[in-house]
Design a protein around this nucleic acid. Structure first.
Lengths: 188, 188
DNA sequence: GTCTATACCGGGATAGAC
DNA sequence: GTCTATCCCGGTATAGAC
C-alpha cells in the first residue's frame, strides 16, 4: 500500500478539514501553507484561486462520502442502513469541532459562485435520494416509520442530520445525532 | 409612532442582516459603514470590537424571535401553533438569501468566543423547549404525531428547521420548509 | 458622537528566479 | 514544482481633532 500523499492531495485534504472547522471565509492560504509545509505561492500553482480550491474540495469530499454510501450492503434491512448512515454522519463530525463540508458551504453559499453552489446541491440531492430509497424500503418492510412520501420525508430527514450536526458541535455532544435516528424507528 | 432609528439601532439591524446573508467572517465594518452612512470609526464607538457587535446582534435577534413566540396564542391547538412557527421561520429567510442568524453563527462557532457560543446555545434551547411544549400538547390532543419523548423530538424538529433553512436557500425554494411541518401532522 | 488620518496586519494573487 | 519578493487591497482597530 502506498501511503505517500502528493502535495496536491495534502492541500486538498487540509482544505477540506479547515473548511469543516471554520468555513470558506474562515481559512487562508497561509493556514494551509503552514499545515502542508509549502509556500502559499505553491498552493496557487495547484489551485489558482481560492474558489478553484473550494470547488475541488467539494468534489473530493462528495466522492468520499458517495463511496461510503455505495459500500452499505444493499441487502441490509432499512433500519440498519439508517443506523449506518447515522454512524457515518457522526464520523464526519470528527472530534466534535467540525461539521459536514457541504452543510458548512450551504451556510457560506452567499459568498460563493454558481459552480460551487451546483456542486453542493448535487451533494444534497445524492444524500436525499439515498435516504429516500432507504425510507421506501423501511416502509415496505415495516422497519421504519414514514409519515408522508419517502422523497419528501428524506429531504426533511437530511435537513435534520445537517441541523443536528450544527447542534452537536454547538453543544459539544453527539447525542443529538442519535435523536434523529430514533424518530424514524418503529417504537418498541 | 416613532419611526426614527438611532444610529446604534441601524448598525445593529444591518449587522444582523449582513450576518444572516454572509456569516460572521463574511461582512466587515466597511460594509456596515456604507449601509448606515457613518464611518467605521463611528461603529467602533458603539461596538468596540466585532465580537461585541456580534454578541449584541445575537441578543437583539433572540429577543425579537422570543417576542414572536410569546405572541402565539396559548389557546390554539398544537398543529396550528406549529404552522405559525413554520411561517415565522419562513419569514426569517426573507427573500430567500438569508438564514436564521443563530443557525449561521452555529456554523461559524469555530471562529467565535465563548460568550457568543453561550448566547447561541440559549437561542437553540429556548426554541427547542417551546417546540417541546407544542409537541407534548399535540400528543395529548392527538393533533400531532410524536415518536419518542417530546423533548428529544423537539431537538430533532428544530434541527430539521435549521437544516431546511440551509436547503431552502441553497435551492432557492421555500417548499422545503413546509415539508418539515408535514411530517408531524396527523395523516389525513 | 462623528470625523480624518493612520497604524498594522493579513488576505489573495502574480512575476520571475531557480 | 517550489521558492522569494512584491503588489494591492481590505480587514479591525486606535488616536486625536472637532
Amino acid at each position: 500500500m502506498d501511503t505517500t500523499a502528493t502535495v496536491r492531495e495534502q492541500i486538498l485534504d487540509h482544505a477540506i478539514t479547515l473548511m469543516m472547522l471554520h468555513g470558506y471565509n474562515g481559512f487562508s492560504y497561509r493556514d494551509l501553507s503552514e499545515l502542508v509545509g509549502v509556500k502559499t505561492s505553491s498552493i496557487h500553482y495547484y489551485f489558482p484561486s481560492k474558489e478553484d480550491l473550494a470547488l475541488e474540495a467539494v468534489n473530493e469530499y462528495s466522492n468520499q462520502i458517495f463511496g461510503l454510501l455505495r459500500a452499505v450492503d444493499a441487502s441490509l434491512p432499512a433500519d440498519v442502513k439508517l443506523a449506518r448512515y447515522t454512524k457515518m454522519f457522526g464520523r464526519t463530525l470528527g472530534d466534535g469541532n467540525q461539521i459536514c463540508l457541504c452543510g458548512m458551504l450551504a451556510a457560506d453559499i452567499g459568498s460563493l459562485p454558481d459552480n460551487i453552489r451546483a456542486a453542493v446541491q448535487a451533494f444534497f440531492k445524492t444524500n436525499e435520494s439515498w435516504l429516500a430509497k432507504v425510507l421506501a424500503q423501511g416502509l415496505k418492510e415495516r422497519t421504519l416509520v414514514v409519515n408522508g412520501k419517502p422523497e419528501s420525508a428524506a429531504r426533511a430527514l437530511f435537513a435534520a442530520y445537517q441541523g443536528s450536526g450544527l447542534a452537536s458541535r454547538l453543544f459539544q455532544t453527539k447525542t443529538r445525532l442519535e435523536e434523529i435516528e430514533a424518530l424514524w424507528k418503529v417504537s418498541k
